[in-house]
Design a protein around this nucleic acid. Structure first.
Length: 481
RNA sequence: UCCUUCUUAGCUCAGUUGGUUAGAGCAUCUGACUGUUAAUCAGAGGGUCCUAGGUUCAAGUCCUAGAGAGGGAGCCA
């Protein structure tokens, strides 16, 4: 009689030697000789494999031939203490069933190391590798940690729309949503497209941010957060941009900028701690992988060991400084004086380039930095205008190796100041009447921020390319699978 | 979008100044081996040298265009 299936993760810590169990999974490797075969089997529950010991004379030769890398098999067997070194337990097979064969001539994943670029082209199968199964188990844990953190704090998870009728969010190029015939759209008399005929009777796009809707929720429920997909049609080709990514956007009534920073720092540390507490075997694997990869580099070019890096961020306060202070530090910095920066800092007002952010985070302070109070000219219309008339209550959190991971602000709560700023920046107030109602009726101090989930994933897993921390990346010219 | 590097076997790569039949490691297959750990050893099969033009007696190698990929920059999360 077939036993109930046990997951390999549970089996590996089981001490019930002699018990009959069933495991199902995918073959990683098979090796051996005419008398004995060893099959490394993985079912995705853990990065570790169970070693199946096959006494060859007891099995049909054709059956054993079908057990190749990638095949799905079901094994009935006896759990025993391993006779070899390298694992503590193994499964002595009594019956084996091949559930699905994998032609070794055609199966793309070979029992050897593959490049991340190659696996990106095989994104539908890369879950079956150690690296990607580790990354996506951690991704699950991080998503769970997001909800756990906010739920514990009494925040409400709010679903903001993915299709938006507003094009004033001001966070970048948008993807049009339309059911009109692209070849023959209905036209107005002046030749422009008549969107009154479209599905929603107006121009609609995929959301670039749930923030504005999130503010509506916060100004009633108190503290809310969103966690959902976000779409940007920017032609960005970098290791840290996606056209479709997941963003977490908390929005809190009665929080000022400092409260906002405190929450963001606590949140980031919570996620890191969650990974350390729950994903250690996967982190250890990724750390080892990273170190192998960096073996070729010089000692001073190597990054801090992954787990050490996570603990370091967890144990240290983030540096907090204003934009103005940052400019002073940068202006007097060695690379600026020696003209090593590509963009030299000479005055106040310009946006920081990534070389400047990297200097602050990786050279000067060597820990995460929260920059606040940016010039109003380089920030969005909804940010709280400071009393100096020059800066706004913005805060960006910069992480080593990643750059900007969080962008947030205290929101402008004053109706007159907000509308004046919208006018200056050409934001159409008529379309935003619903948003302005929060300032008309019961306005109050409130703040929020956005965290790019995949950027957090980059940091926690130590992966170098954002395409490798989301199952099916969408980037310019690429929407496979 | 800009700058830059790359595209040769299933994978990772080598291929000299333009010159005979394009190589290696791994993977695959076959064989050997009674406990292997990326098993080991021996052998075999495997090529649209990214695509299209061009220069030349002769192009994987030089030139032009295109496609795709990596890295960096900008935009940002």
């Amino acid at each position: 009689m077939e036993q109930k299936r046990i997951k390999i993760k549970d089996l590996l810590v089981s001490k019930e030697y002699g018990s009959e169990v069933n495991v199902k999974g995918w073959v990683r490797t098979k090796r051996g000789n005419k008398q004995i075969n060893f099959v490394a089997l993985n079912d995705g529950s853990t990065i570790n494999n169970i070693q199946i010991v096959v006494d060859v004379p007891n099995f049909n030769e054709d059956l054993l031939k079908k057990i190749t890398t990638g095949a799905a098999i079901s094994v009935q067997g006896k759990l025993i203490e391993s006779a070899g070194s390298g694992q503590s337990v193994e499964l002595e097979a009594t019956t084996i069933e091949v559930l699905g064969v994998a032609d070794p001539e055609k199966y793309p994943l070979q029992p050897k190391k593959h490049s991340l670029e190659f696996l990106r082209e095989k994104a539908h199968l890369r879950f079956r590798t150690n690296t990607f199964s580790a990354v996506f188990r951690i991704r699950h844990a991080m998503a769970f940690a997001v909800h756990e953190f906010f739920n514990k704090k009494g925040f409400f998870y709010m679903h903001t729309p993915l299709i938006t009728g507003s094009d004033a969010e001001g966070a970048g190029e948008m993807f049009r949503v339309s059911t009109l015939d692209a070849k023959n759209p209905p036209l107005n008399e002046d030749g422009t497209i008549n969107y009154k005929e479209d599905f929603f009777g107006k121009e609609t796009n995929l959301t670039v941010s749930g923030q504005l809707e999130g503010e509506l929720g916060a100004m009633a429920l108190g503290e809310i957060y969103t966690f959902g997909p976000t779409f940007r049609a920017e032609n960005s080709n970098t290791t840290r941009h996606l056209a479709e990514f997941w963003m977490i956007e908390p929005e809190m009534a009665f929080y000022d900028l400092k409260d906002n920073m405190d929450l963001a720092e606590e949140f980031l540390k919570y996620m890191i701690k969650y990974a350390l507490d729950n994903c250690m075997t996967d982190l250890e694997f990724l750390s080892k992988r990273l170190q192998e990869e960096e073996k070729g580099k010089k000692a001073d070019e190597r990054s801090m060991e992954l787990i050490e890096k996570l603990r370091f961020v967890l144990d240290n306060d983030f540096v907090r400084l204003t934009y103005t202070e940052a400019i002073d530090i940068l202006r007097n910095s060695k690379p600026n004086k020696k003209k090593k920066f590509q963009y030299l800092i000479d005055g106040w007002g310009a946006d920081l380039q990534s070389e400047h952010e990297r200097y602050l985070v990786e050279k000067k302070f060597e820990k995460p930095v929260i920059l606040t109070d940016y010039p109003k000219e380089i920030k969005s219309f909804y940010m709280k205008q400071n009393d100096d008339g020059k800066t706004v209550g913005a805060m960006d959190i910069l992480f080593p190796g990643i750059g900007e991971i969080v962008g947030g602000s205290q929101r402008e709560e004053d109706y007159d100041k907000l509308t004046a700023r919208m006018k200056e920046m050409g934001v159409p107030a008529e379309e935003m009447d619903w948003y302005l109602d929060t300032r008309r009726f019961g306005s109050a101090t409130h703040s929020g921020f956005g965290l790019g989930f995949e950027r957090m994933m980059l940091f926690v897993t130590g992966m170098g390319n954002i395409r490798d921390v989301i199952p099916f990346p969408r980037t310019p010219k690429n929407a496979e699978f």
